[in-house]
């Protein structure tokens, strides 16, 4: 059985380098992701979220920490487990839940679904449901930045299982050789889907232990501590913006839910989830705020306002119309239509 205590690297987020304003934003973001994801799960059980759904419950510190370190113009490339990363860039909860519920108010009006959340205006350049596909795509966006002298960074999130697919290795090599401003973020939640990642790799850490093959620093961090994530992100972004090339960051974490849908995650040893919940990122961070003297009522106000946003979004989505059928045939091609012949 894996516990956070024996898995996560030593180090503490306790340091006053992050000001209170940013800390409150990091907390708000994590609570918002937690509430929205928990709501998505509840709505799935009510058959109101259709199709599939891959939650980031327990992994919020990574999405929040990276997004809070990004600036406008930075680009996020996500996997199908992308609700949290999409929300963390500021996309309204209603837009995300609307897409999960396949309503007309959804982010893509029901044309993409939960696995393909995209919001260009927020820098969310897509959620990709083919494992590894987006790592080379993030390289391409970074290549454009390098070519034009733009200062944005492309940030690519993926799970531990992705480290075993070819596109991971192609992208890492490509990015390192071309010194691209791209940051690869591996969220190691210990399970590739249902199979423990340790059963399918010959090394202890799926991403960090491969970094040296691409001439990159070995970076392994506690992904359940938003301060550590935030600092690591800032450092990697500075390196990218300075033209010093990519970073590969492995964040240790644990997903509280199953892989997808209503997966009960029976493949996990008894007690493992409970052990990891002792290192729940939202609780870790709430305690952190208290350590820094943030008053309970400030925390309670954040919790309440987040809950209200999620509640309001839920009601708006329940009331929203289904997508209008005339969009079935739009946007296949750039002319807006689908004509393949004259």
């Amino acid at each position: 059985m894996s516990t956070a205590k024996d898995r996560v690297p030593a180090g503490s987020g306790l340091n006053d380098d992050i000001g209170e304003k940013k800390r409150l934003e990091l907390y708000r973001s994590q609570v918002r992701l937690r509430e929205a994801e928990q709501r998505a799960f509840d709505l799935f059980l009510q058959n109101l979220v259709k199709g599939t759904s891959h939650l980031s419950l327990g992994q919020e510190a990574i999405a929040a920490g990276f997004a809070e370190a990004m600036v406008k113009g930075d680009l996020s490339f996500c996997t199908y487990r992308g609700h949290a990363h999409t929300l963390a860039r500021g996309v309204p909860v209603e837009k995300v839940l609307g897409e999960l519920m396949q309503r007309d108010n959804g982010l893509m009006r029901g044309k993409g679904g939960s696995m393909h959340l995209t919001s260009e205006e927020h820098g969310v350049m897509g959620s990709y449901a083919i494992i590894g596909a987006h790592l080379p795509i993030a390289c391409g966006a970074a290549w454009r930045a390098q070519y034009r002298g733009d200062k944005d960074v492309s940030v690519c999130f993926f799970g531990d299982g992705t480290t075993n697919i070819g596109a991971f290795h192609e992208a890492l090599n490509f990015a390192a050789v071309w010194k691209l401003p791209v940051v690869f973020v591996c969220e190691n939640n210990l399970y590739m889907e249902y199979t423990p990642i340790k059963d399918v790799i010959p090394i202890p850490q799926p991403a960090a232990d491969r970094a040296s093959a691409y001439g990159l620093e070995r970076i392994l961090i506690d992904g359940n501590d938003a301060d550590i994530v935030y600092r690591t992100a800032q450092k990697a972004f500075a390196r990218a913006r300075a033209g010093e090339g990519p970073s590969l960051i492995e964040c240790l974490t644990y997903r509280h839910s199953g892989h997808s849908r209503a997966d009960p995650a029976k493949y996990r040893p008894e007690g493992e989830l409970e052990e990891w919940k002792k290192h729940d990122p939202v609780n870790v961070y709430r305690e952190r705020l208290k350590q820094f003297g943030v008053k309970d009522d400030v925390i309670a106000e954040i919790d309440a306002s987040v809950r209200k946003e999620v509640d309001d979004a839920t009601e708006a989505c329940k009331a929203a119309a289904p997508p209008s059928l005339d969009i079935i045939f739009t946007d296949v091609y750039a002319d807006g239509g689908w004509a393949w012949r004259n």
């Binding site: 680009l75 350049m125 897509g126 590894g132 596909a133 987006h134 790592l135 080379p136 795509i137 993030a138 390289c139 391409g140 966006a141 970074a142 290549w143 454009r144 930045a145 070519y147 034009r148 492309s154 070819g166 596109a167 192609e170 992208a171 090599n173 490509f174 050789v177």
Partner: peptide, 20 residues
């Protein structure tokens, strides 16, 4: 490029999506 057809096409796509 390296012999990395996925990297070639993926990079082309990312560049195309963002303006090249």
């Amino acid at each position: 490029t390296p012999i990395s057809e996925q990297a070639i096409l993926g990079a082309a796509m990312g560049a195309a999506m963002t303006g090249l």
